[in-house]
């Protein structure tokens, strides 16, 4: 019999029930505790009242106080025991219902989606057909996505880069701590500098050693992704993010003093300014020529070669520089309020 019982208890269903009920065991104990206490408290007080008649008035006062407290306790008792139990049950049920609902809706959405490569979808219209058939010929980029975002829809990408630049400027306005007019640091800046990495390991040899090896490799990889953006997946945004990760690693390992030697506000300003203005001017020239049916004079090169794709590679470089500077300056501003 006991073996059968233990067999039943080791079943997953029984174990799930045990797990589900164990959470309420403590609450059950609390309810029992509460019920026993309410019966004992007034009886004790009444016994003492009978025994000591001369202290009647003070005892009476005590008793009323105790009863008041008891009333208050009883008033909140539901919320303390049964209410909490109901709410925790409700949480479990709601969590399960929400999870089931999410799963149901996601599966429903997947089931309603068109088959992969279906020609009858609204997305497969004349525009995407033109991208696929004539993209290589018109843009010179083997990576069709690069050809799309930096040639057909270059205006959109300019907007994205500008949004990044504006976000960085807004964060700069909000978080930057200025110095005094004579160049001496204000109190806030001193506090921020002493607070920066108050507890963190400051000059960690292991981190510095690995950063010395890893940072150049990360930079090289980011540059490769940017320069190869028109040939393989990648491009300015992802390459710029990788370069900024390398910059942040260097900053973490060696601190603001060493990172400030090559990256200051001036660097940020000029790099962003030149990248964005180059982007805007180059694309304005290209749009102007395209709209008026003029020859733009930009050679497309042989598809697949590194120097091909017309303006795509320089535009990738510009976008990558803006992204790298923006992400790095975000990190520096949120950490210390300055470079």
């Amino acid at each position: 019999m006991s073996k059968r019982r233990s067999d039943w208890e080791s079943r997953p269903q029984a174990r799930f029930r045990k797990w589900y009920k164990e959470g309420f065991l403590a609450l059950d104990n609390e309810i029992i505790d509460h019920l026993t206490r309410t019966t004992e408290l007034p009886e004790n007080i009444e016994d003492r009242l009978i025994a000591q008649q001369e202290e009647m008035t003070s005892r009476q006062h005590e008793r009323t106080l105790a009863l008041e407290r008891l009333d208050q306790y009883n008033m909140l008792a539901w919320a303390r025991t049964r209410g909490r139990k109901a709410i925790s049950r409700l949480y479990v049920i709601l969590a399960l219902a929400l999870g089931a609902m999410m799963i149901f809706f996601l599966l429903e959405t997947v089931a309603l989606m068109p088959r992969f490569g279906d020609p009858a979808t609204p997305g497969a219209n004349i525009v995407s057909e033109r991208y696929i058939t004539k993209g290589l010929e018109e843009t010179g980029a083997t990576n069709i996505v690069a050809g799309m975002i930096l040639d057909y829809r270059a205006f959109d990408t300019l907007g994205e880069s500008t949004v990044l630049f504006i976000a960085a400027s807004a964060v700069l306005i909000l978080l930057r701590i200025d110095r005094n007019k004579d160049g001496s640091p204000v109190q806030e800046l001193i506090a921020a500098e002493s607070d920066d990495r108050h507890y963190e390991p400051r000059n960690d040899r292991i981190l510095q050693g690995s950063a010395m090896i890893l940072t150049p490799i990360i930079f090289l990889y980011g540059i490769y992704i940017i320069l190869n953006g028109h040939l393989s997946p990648g491009g300015g945004f992802s390459g710029g993010a990788i370069i900024s990760a390398g910059l942040i690693l260097y900053l973490d390992a060696f601190g603001f003093d060493k990172a400030g030697r090559f990256f200051t506000y001036k660097t940020f300003t000029w790099v962003s300014f030149f990248s964005l203005s180059f982007y805007a001017l180059a694309k304005a020239y290209s749009f102007y020529c395209g709209a008026n049916n003029l020859p733009s004079g930009i050679p497309l090169g042989t598809p697949g070669a590194i120097l091909s794709g017309g303006l795509i590679m320089p535009l990738n470089i510009a976008v990558g520089m803006v992204v790298a500077c923006t992400m790095y300056i975000f990190y520096a501003l949120f950490r210390k309020g300055g470079l």
Binding site: Y199, E200, L207, I213
Partner: peptide, 20 residues
């Protein structure tokens, strides 16, 4: 790359815990 980066991050977490 992962064998470079991951132990270093674990080391930093451990050192931070020991420090604070």
């Amino acid at each position: 790359f992962l064998w470079f980066a991951s132990p270093v991050s674990s080391h930093l977490i451990a050192r931070l815990e020991v420090t604070i």
